[in-house]
Structure formats: C-alpha cells, structure tokens
C-alpha cells in the first residue's frame, strides 16, 4: 500500500459517501445517471468475485464490501425508493449503456491476464469501469444547473483513478516486474474521459460560477 493508492481509495470512498449523502438526506437523485450506477454495480460484482476465495487484508475485504453494498443500494434507491425515484429523469438518462457491456466483454475474452472465468470477469470489470462514467457525463451536459453534490461526486470519482495512476507509477519504480497493462491503459482512458469535466469543474471553482458543461 502507498500514499497514492490510499488517497485514491479514500477519494473513491468519499465519492460514494457524497452520493449516498445526496440520495439519503435530500432524497433526490437529480442529475445522477442510473445507468452509470448500474454499470458501477456490475463493475464491482465482476471485479470482486474473489472476495470470499482470496483474502488479501481486512482493509481490502472491508472496502470491497463497502463498494458492493453502496453501489447496489444506490441502484435500489434510484429504482425503487418512492421519493428518490421520482427525482430520476428517465427521459434525460438515455445513453444505451448496454452497448458498452458487449464490447468490454469481447475485449475481456481477448485481452486478459489468464483465460479463466474469474480473470475474464476481472478484465471485463476494468474495461467497463473505464467507460462507466459516459452516461453520467452525457447526462451532465443535458442538466442545466448541476447541483454541488453531483459535481463533487463526479469530480471525486474521476480523481480517484487519477490517484491510482500515480500509484501505478510509484509501484512501477519501487516493485520489480510490476507491469499491468490492462489496468494502466484502462485507467488512463478512464481518467482522460474526465478531462473536459475537470476543466469546467476547475473553471467554475476558480471563477466561483455555477458548474456548466457545454452541450
């Protein structure tokens, strides 16, 4: 474990807590894409298949349970909670996210660390996470006024993978034979997808203006 990875995990945890705070306290999911939440639940479900077979550390298992529990409960909240589901605008959240799943699955069948069910599912989860934010970014472009919690949620979600890139650089230089092209390339693509969001988020913070993404 290094400071970059710990900071990355804490930033990821913070993004989940901000979203849960928004949904649980103000009972609203305005501006949140259910499709991105569904993709993230699938990411964790396929990445943490080893949660009961391989024990890494208490920290690792605890964080996996938190991410699994929070992602599925957020999907449940937006779909089924009588008040929260009313603030979900289905007509705006139109990205065909199923079109993301098939190519990621095909790519995972071709490019993986070992051709076993668990490893193909793990590679699938890495590729899917790289593109899981797309429905949310598309929705943000359509959302006239993005509320602060939503903006902070997306920012933290993007920042966590950027911190993981620093972690991979650190581990490359400090551990022998630490090379993981699958996570490196996917993590870079994932972070680059946030580039324009980061730009407008920073601009709105610097000029103290409302966050607005150009359509």
């Amino acid at each position: 474990m290094n400071i970059f990875r710990l900071a990355g995990d804490m930033t990821h945890l913070a993004s989940v807590l901000v979203l849960l705070l928004k949904i649980h306290t103000i009972k609203s999911c305005a501006g949140i894409s259910l499709k991105t939440q569904e993709l993230y639940a699938l990411v964790f479900a396929t990445r943490y298949l080893d949660i009961f077979t391989d024990f890494i550390s208490l920290y690792n298992t605890t964080m996996k349970l938190i991410f699994l529990g929070s992602s599925f409960s957020i999907v449940w909240y937006i779909r089924n909670h009588k008040i929260v589901s009313r603030s979900y605008d289905k007509s705006q959240d139109t990205f065909r996210h199923y079109f993301l799943i098939i190519p990621c699955l095909l790519l995972a069948l071709l490019v993986n660390e070992k051709f076993t069910f668990k490893e193909v599912m793990w590679a699938f989860s890495i590729y899917l996470e790289a593109v899981a934010i797309l429905p949310q970014l598309v929705l943000l472009q359509r959302t006239r006024n993005i509320d602060n919690l939503t903006g902070q949620y997306v920012f933290l979600l993007g920042a966590y993978r950027a911190l993981y890139i620093l972690n991979w650089i650190y581990r490359y230089f400090t551990e022998t034979h630490y090379v993981h092209w699958i996570t490196w390339v996917s993590g870079l693509v994932q972070t680059l997808l946030y580039a324009d969001f980061f730009y407008y988020y920073f601009e709105s913070w610097k000029n103290n203006k409302k966050l607005q993404l150009p359509a």
């Binding site: 990875r5 990821h12 080893d50 964080m63 996996k64 991410f67 070992k114 668990k118 793990w122």
Partner: peptide, 10 residues
C-alpha cells in the same frame, strides 16, 4: 492459489 494472478488493488 498458485498461477492465479492476485489482484491486490480494489
């Protein structure tokens, strides 16, 4: 288990 890559990151 041997041979199976161990993913220690979340």
């Amino acid at each position: 288990p041997l041979g199976e890559p161990m993913h220690d990151e979340l």
